[in-house]
Write a protein that binds this DNA or RNA. Structure first.
Lengths: 226, 226
DNA sequence: TCAAGTAAGTGTGATTGATACACCAAGGAT
DNA sequence: ATCCTTGGTGTATCAATCACACTTACTTGA
């Protein structure tokens, strides 16, 4: 079943797919969205949602479409991560995969629904990942690293928060993503000092405990740096 | 001449190419390597070196090979930049291009030699770029932005210097890349403070003027951050 | 040989950002 | 009422950044 097709100019063409690494934060842990493959190869294994590029479709549109088809999830932010193309990464044929990194807001109530090539869909905490199809483990590693890096010098975090948030929520989110605990006073000082966020004027109660001030990002703003 | 080929599973496959943005610094200006296209489309126009992916070839290997075939240039560093896939970016057929950013050392004596699909090869200063084929203008913009950004938080700059360099050379290189002049004393203090570089113990004379201390990077070191 | 030009080399003071660190208040659960 | 949990606050130290000017060594051309 090796297969390469030939272009009219006689160039054999690889297949092109997109895969989407979708992050969200729940219960103070970073999670990623996976689907269980309904079809070979790797039938029954967990994998990133994704699939073949339609011939007249933009790459990012393909990533969004495949994600929607297989999981029903619509993301708040998506950006290109890296293109993976090892010749042996798919046993069927040569496949080039353009990976996208996406985020869903913390308070997004949407439930994923398995469909199309997906036999099941689930959010997995990053430290409980199952064995993954293809090279998807490496792809997730790269995405995680990128997310961590971008925490430092972009406002990508605010694509993972709800539209409004408390400083406590924001701090727990930072801690979930890059692992280590942060000093509360220094964290707050820095966040407020950067001028990226502003008070909404409201307070919110966490269910338990005392009410906390609500913030939002000041400018709808560039999240894309590079 | 619209053409898409069909895979055995009946998916039409786009073509996949790599393009390489190769930077070097000469005469205190940043330059990029372009080829004049020998064949349609855009015959006679300047474009990035690059071409179709061989079906069993790694992406990065393809980038290096196409660069070598068309220009004879071997780079000191190469990394993936971004994948460009607008459906209309090539008039022939659907083409997905994986762009690579590469560097050549300042003192590399190699002369580019046009061959294969290239009718000519030339280094262009970034502010004298000719009209470019395809979306290569945008690709260069993105590469330039990436290079500027990476100046700040990686040691990518040391892939553009000679193996040894003076602080004056290094500063002019920084200034060439991100445009603005820098204060000499602050620049030197920072460079030495970061501990990335060390003296070789030699001095070098610039042809004119008094001899200057020679430096090199301390660790052969990670250039790749993300 | 002298004068002019160009790049190498050097230090300080002010400001800003980062870090370490401890206590009280308010609400919920028991 | 007690305990537990989270919200909220300030200061002192250190490191990094920035602005800023003069002297020396060598080359070139008058």
């Amino acid at each position: 079943m090796t297969s390469t097709t030939r272009h009219c100019y006689d160039y054999p063409h690889p297949a092109v797919t997109t895969d989407v690494i979708t992050f969200r934060v729940r219960a103070d842990q970073l999670q990623v969205l996976l689907v269980r493959r309904a079809n070979p190869p790797f039938q029954g294994r967990w994998a990133l949602p994704g699939g073949f590029l339609d011939i007249d479709e933009d790459l990012e549109q393909c990533a969004r479409r495949e994600l929607a088809e297989e999981t029903g999830i619509r993301v708040t932010h998506i950006e290109q991560l890296h293109t993976f193309g090892r010749p042996d990464r798919d046993p069927r044929e040569r496949v080039i995969s353009v990976a996208y990194l996406a985020t869903v807001r913390q308070d997004d109530p949407a439930q994923p629904v398995a469909a199309s090539d997906a036999a099941a869909v689930r959010w997995f905490p990053l430290d409980e990942l199952p064995g993954l199809a293809f090279d998807h483990g490496q792809i997730i590693d790269k995405a995680r690293q990128r997310l961590r890096d971008k925490l430092e010098y972009t406002s990508l975090v605010f694509q993972l928060t709800a539209e409004t948030f408390t400083l406590g929520e924001l701090q727990r989110l930072y801690e979930a993503i890059h692992g280590s605990p942060l000093d509360k006073r220094n964290f707050r000082k820095r966040m407020l000092g950067l001028g990226q966020i502003e008070e909404t004027g409201h307070t919110r109660r966490n269910g338990k405990h005392r009410p906390a001030r609500e913030y939002r990002i000041r400018h709808p703003q560039r999240v894309e740096y590079f």
